[in-house]
Design a protein around this nucleic acid. Structure first.
Length: 651
RNA sequence: GCCCAAGUAGCUCAGGGGUAGAGCGCAUCCUUGGUAAGGAUGAGGUCGCGGGUUCAAUUCCCGCCUUGGGCUCCA
């Protein structure tokens, strides 16, 4: 056969064989070839220089360009190879691990894991990047070769690449593809495809160096990971770098210090949060909102201790599964006690304190329960990952027929609360048991089917779109996870609604049914924030430190222009305080500009500028932190304005 | 826990083999100025901790602690 039937952009024609993918595209569309990085031939992504095999069927060709997600992935993956090539060039003897493109992680675009002959440091990154840039300019071609598995193994053994050999051994069938970059010592075992040559890589940057384990296994070789990112165009890279800077400005650790919200002091312990007065106010307001909702929804408030006898944790199963995260036992008169990593067993204790009738259910216990977990030091991160934190915890003990209604109410609760904070994009994920091959699930099939149905129908009834995730359920029951998207598009996993068949069993919970028989209740674990510390961190970053009026530690600051006005200023402040607002009065003898600057930097929602004019007619000149000067009004008018704003918890 | 980096005044940071600097903040005084920084003076530091090299270490070397970036998207 000497002709190939090719379809491209809706047209079909025959071209002479042999031909590469590039030849085929060229026959239809010369410009298109310039833009193409690779192509899909009958759906399979291949290199442009791939030889087309002649068949009777029509070859449908679709170019992959830099604008598409596939194209970007290609660029990033190819850049990772360029990185490896530069490393081999600069540090001969470097052993290669893997180097994938990262498409989900907003922080990075690709990485390569390596073991270099000497330890790499951050100072090496610019040098490596420079070499990559130099290679990119030379338009070095990526070449693919199909080789027998045994030959590949031989090749990489010869190059002393034990990790690659392990991969090849595991992943390759009888033949596999390897890639070279021209004029470079680089050869990789890789499926491809890649961009045709390094000249297509225009906008990339190396970002960070870190440790990583081979296969992510702490027992295996420690490697060094080099992270970078790449885009199709320099403008996109620049924009991305700028956005990264913006995100850094929102860092809750930085703002926490600047706004005097909280601190972590090693003299007290890593991962232990000291809430300062201003952070304390925000927390009080957060808890106030929760408490209002809990009360309205018929929850009761309980309080439980921070330690319990070791045996309790044996019964609950935490000793068995969770001991690594628990602090060591402490002895009190020959009895061992442990700090609590969770609140559930205590709430169970409250349930068990008296026999329950079906008429008593549901029981809804809520508590800001402070728990302690021995997280690894390297994982600690500001407020986001700590060792002691409070869970906005609640446990619902329900009859099987009540699951649906209770879960639906939890969903309403979550949506209402997150909406108040301005998180209008809330995502729900329903994690279910998944395939039958998954073992180790507790509870009967009927229970699971019923429970999953009830969760799903609660979601449907509330017209909530959700993602169903197979095989992600906890071993003790299905769950709904709640994720939110913040002001700059980052996703945070927060609360969870979990059904539990396990603990009621372990603690032998019961209620008496209308049939006068003993029945086992279901237990629902429910938290909206998960950790109030972590949610506080999310809020700081979401608002970039500019809390809405109802949350703001200082809501109004009064700024007299001269000392003559100080008395009036204090009087205005006192009156606002009496009306229930958090007010400060800045009577230091600074110029008004300096006082305003100070208040702006503290992100105080309202500034009242007071001078002779205001004193005379008893008014206040109002400056709003974002809009600036919004003009003068009477104090009564101002009070009414902010009272509305506060009570409605406006954003 | 492991890899890399950093720890200097309350904060942000500069410096460097001969025991320390700036800006902000703080205190006092002068100034009373209408919407993002008025001026002067002053207080404040075992230069993370421990060891080593040296006549001499905050600086060089080693160890530790803490903080920061990370630690299975996979040929």
């Amino acid at each position: 056969m000497t002709e190939l039937n090719v379809k491209y952009g809706g047209n079909e024609r025959s071209i002479p064989a042999p031909a590469t993918v590039a030849d085929a595209i060229k026959a239809f569309d010369r410009d298109g070839l310039k833009k193409a990085l690779a192509a899909k031939v009958n759906g399979e992504e291949v290199d442009l220089n791939r030889e087309l095999t002649a068949t009777d069927e029509v070859l449908s060709i679709e170019p992959v360009t830099a604008d598409s997600r596939d194209g970007l992935e290609l660029i990033r993956h190819s850049t990772a190879h360029l990185l490896a090539a530069a490393l081999l060039d600069l540090f001969p003897g470097t052993k290669l691990g893997v180097g994938p493109a990262l498409m989900e992680d907003p922080r990075y675009g690709y990485y390569y894991d390596v073991i270099a002959p000497r330890t790499l440091t951050e100072a090496d990154l610019p040098v490596i990047e420079k070499r990559m840039k130099g290679m990119a300019k030379q338009n070095l071609v990526y070449r693919r070769e199909i080789v027998k598995k045994s030959a590949i193994l031989e090749l990489f053994k010869g190059r002393d690449e034990p990790l690659k050999c392990e991969l090849i051994d595991k992943k390759a069938t009888d033949t596999a593809s390897i890639y070279h970059i021209d004029n470079s010592p680089f050869i990789d075992f890789c499926l491809g495809p890649h961009v045709p040559h390094t000249g297509k890589l225009q906008a990339f940057k190396l970002l960070a160096l870190s440790g990583a384990y081979w296969k992510g296994d702490a027992e295996r070789e420690q490697m060094q990971r080099i992270y970078g990112t790449a885009f199709a165009r320099q403008e996109e890279l620049d924009a991305w770098l700028k956005q990264r800077e913006e995100a850094e400005k929102r860092d809750h650790r930085k703002l926490g210090k600047q706004l005097d919200l909280f601190s972590i002091d090693d003299d007290y312990g890593q991962g232990l949060i000291l809430w300062h007065p201003k952070g304390g106010i925000v927390r009080m307001e957060m808890e106030r909102l929760l408490r209002e909702e809990l009360e309205q929804r018929g929850y009761s408030f309980v309080f439980t201790p921070h330690i319990a006898k070791r045996q309790l944790w044996v019964t609950s199963g935490h000793e068995g599964n969770y001991a690594d995260s628990m602090y060591a036992p402490t002895n009190i008169e020959d009895e061992e006690y442990r700090l609590k990593p969770m609140n559930c067993p205590f709430h169970i204790g409250i349930y068990k304190a008296s026999p329950k009738s079906y008429r008593d259910l549901p029981q809804r216990y809520s508590e800001m329960g402070t728990v302690y977990r021995a997280e690894l030091s390297g994982t600690l991160h500001g407020l986001m990952r700590v060792r002691g934190f409070s869970v906005d915890d609640a446990h619902l003990f329900v009859r099987p027929d009540q699951v649906h209604a209770e879960v639906a109410d939890c969903l309403d609760f979550a949506i209402k609360v997150f909406d108040t904070y301005g998180f209008d994009k809330v995502k729900f994920e329903l994690s279910v048991r998944g395939g039958a091959e998954n073992k180790g699930y507790l509870g009967s099939d009927e229970d699971w089917v019923a429970a999953e149905d009830q969760l799903a129908s609660a979601l449907k009834e509330r017209e909530i779109s959700y993602e169903r995730i197979e095989g992600e359920a906890a071993f003790y029951g299905p769950k709904i996870d709640i994720k939110i998207e913040d002001a700059i598009g980052r996703i945070w996993q927060l609360g969870t609604i979990q059904l539990d068949f396990n603990l009621p069993e372990r603690f032998e919970l019961e209620y008496t049914g209308d049939d006068n028989q003993k029945h086992r209740p279901f237990m629902i674990h429910r938290a909206l924030f998960g950790s109030i510390e972590r949610f506080f961190g999310v809020l700081i970053e979401h608002y970039a430190g500019a809390f809405p009026l109802w949350l703001a530690p200082v809501q109004v600051v009064v700024l007299p222009i001269t000392d003559r006005i100080n008395d009036y200023a204090n009087q205005v402040a006192a009156e606002l305080r009496a009306a229930g607002f958090r007010v400060e009065s800045n009577t230091i003898s600074d110029k008004i500009g300096a006082k305003i600057r100070d208040a702006q930097m503290q992100k105080i929602p309202y500034m009242l500028v007071l001078g002779d004019k205001e004193l005379e007619d008893g008014s206040v000149a109002v400056r709003e932190r974002k809009q600036g000067d919004i003009g003068a009004m009477t104090l009564a008018e101002f009070k009414e304005k902010i009272a509305t704003e506060k009570s409605s918890r406006s954003l």
